[in-house]
């Protein structure tokens, strides 16, 4: 599903955000992307979503290299991926229903199908009763669930999330992670970036750990660095 081959990413004028990244995720797998703030988690997800291109190396999604994807194909490519963001990226002048419908509308989906699929997606995150609410009227946790409903409304085979629980308290974070786990159980490939070490370790999934743009051996990564991450949490 996802394959990184010697991927390096250097932002213009900056240092290397990612260096020599090599990893593979199979279809249906669920993994967490961890590391300090600034380790390169967001950058890695941006390479998957074709928001950025690798400086060298290749990112393959479904066997297709992102580097060779022509500009006009990028929207089609993104329609096959569900993305969840830390800041939700909702449209605050539209109802929950219209927010979730956006990925279908941009793909010219017929209206009858839109209503059906939006309600199915809202049902999956437990927000069916809020379809006419405005996002501002929802709690942060609910807003994030709207973001997830929007990400899955097109039933993507791949779901990526960048710190989806970043602004949530532990209980709500657990809820959100449970939703991702459920999608993984029905065959969706899920990659979630998070620096919340205690939350991740409780879920017992594969870890991809980054440290200053490099991959850390996943075997050691999880427990050995816990102390460091807690310290980071305090000042971040």
């Amino acid at each position: 599903m996802i394959q990184f081959e010697k991927v390096t990413k250097r932002y213009p004028g900056g240092q290397e955000a990612l260096q020599a990244i090599d990893f593979k995720m199979d279809a249906g797998e669920m993994a967490f992307l961890t590391g300090h703030s600034g380790a390169g988690k967001s950058t890695l997800l941006k390479l998957i979503a074709l928001i950025e291109l690798p400086t060298s190396g290749h990112v393959f999604i479904n066997g297709r290299s992102t580097t060779t994807t022509p500009r006009w194909r990028i929207p089609l490519f993104r329609r096959q991926i569900g993305m969840v963001f830390q800041d939700h990226k909702l449209l605050y002048d539209r109802s929950v229903f219209n927010n979730v419908a956006l990925p279908l509308i941009v793909a010219s989906t017929p209206r009858q199908q839109i209503a059906k699929r939006v309600r199915a997606a809202l049902d999956q995150v437990g927000l069916l009763h809020k379809e006419n609410a405005m996002p501002m009227a929802l709690s942060t946790g609910e807003q994030q669930r709207v973001g997830i409903a929007r990400a899955v409304v097109r039933k993507p085979a791949l779901l990526i999330a960048d710190e989806p629980t970043g602004n949530l308290d532990p209980e709500l974070s657990q809820e959100i992670m449970a939703i991702f786990t459920r999608f993984s159980e029905v065959g969706v490939t899920v990659l979630v970036a998070s620096h919340d070490q205690s939350l991740i370790s409780s879920l017992n999934r594969r870890l991809i750990t980054l440290d200053q743009g490099r991959m850390v051996d996943p075997g050691i990564g999880a427990n050995a660095d816990t102390g460091v991450f807690t310290g980071d949490d305090g000042n971040g």
């Binding site: 993104r78 990226k89 449209l91 956006l102 941009v106 793909a107």
Partner: peptide, 16 residues
């Protein structure tokens, strides 16, 4: 701008 960025992220084409 925000709306445009979000629309792009969910797969909105230039034409859309």
């Amino acid at each position: 701008r925000d709306e445009i960025e979000i629309t792009r992220l969910v797969g909105g084409s230039d034409a859309f």
